[in-house]
């Protein structure tokens, strides 16, 4: 079938098999490999993208269902060479290790902050509870989202304030003596 949709702001027209899952369409047909696939049962959330501004699990959406709608993926978060505050927050607060869950987490986090610019820890945990991270234990992801909430304009250039650093890190230690 012929699919006509919009992905990251660009119109896309492709011939696809009707059964093609959105995650495979994005990855295999469009080469947008930032969206990942991690389970068979809609449990892991590594595949989260936006459909008309709402986070969806792209393994559970047929590509055909996006016809006439708008899809956004992690690749669209950076704008004009400037990272979205959630991307910066994940780097600043070590919200990722292997990076496999990260694109999905970032899309959910951005959607959350658009809805609720100052979410509580409980709200953040609830928002990402449909997604699994095996590496971080989630606390650093919560911190990352909070960082983004605290820096709605991001931190252009090298001006990430020293006060942020002071707030969440131990005092300098001599070599081998960090505690």
């Amino acid at each position: 079938m012929r699919l006509s949709t919009t992905v990251n702001g660009e119109p896309v027209i492709r011939e696809i098999e009707p059964r093609t899952l959105l995650v495979h369409f994005l990855r295999d047909d469009l080469g947008l490999t930032g969206t990942h696939w991690g389970c068979d049962t809609s449990n892991c959330g590594t595949c989260v993208v936006w459909l008309d501004g709402e986070p969806v699990k792209s393994c559970t959406v047929l590509a055909a269902m996006t016809g006439g709608h708008e899809v956004r993926t992690v690749e669209s978060l950076e704008k004009d060479g400037v990272l979205d505050p959630v991307q910066q927050g994940f780097m600043e607060c070590h919200g990722l290790q292997c990076g496999f869950c990260t694109p999905g987490m970032l899309m959910t986090a951005r959607a959350l902050l658009d809805r609720d610019p100052d979410p509580s820890e409980a709200t953040i945990r609830e928002a990402i509870s449909g997604q699994i991270c095996r590496c971080t234990g989630y606390t650093s992801i919560v911190h990352s989202v909070q960082w983004a909430a605290d820096h709605p304009a991001g931190a252009p250039g090298d001006t990430v304030a020293a006060e942020d650093a002071a707030a969440d890190e131990p005092a300098p230690q001599p070599v081998g003596g960090a505690s």
Binding site: R27, H36, T73, L83, T102
Partner: peptide
């Protein structure tokens, strides 16, 4: 030594990690 942000993160947060698949 010391707390240093990771060199690998800029590619991961952009969805530019390169995994086997």
């Amino acid at each position: 030594y010391g707390r240093m942000l990771r060199k690998e993160d800029p590619r991961f947060v952009r969805g530019q990690g390169k995994y086997v698949d």
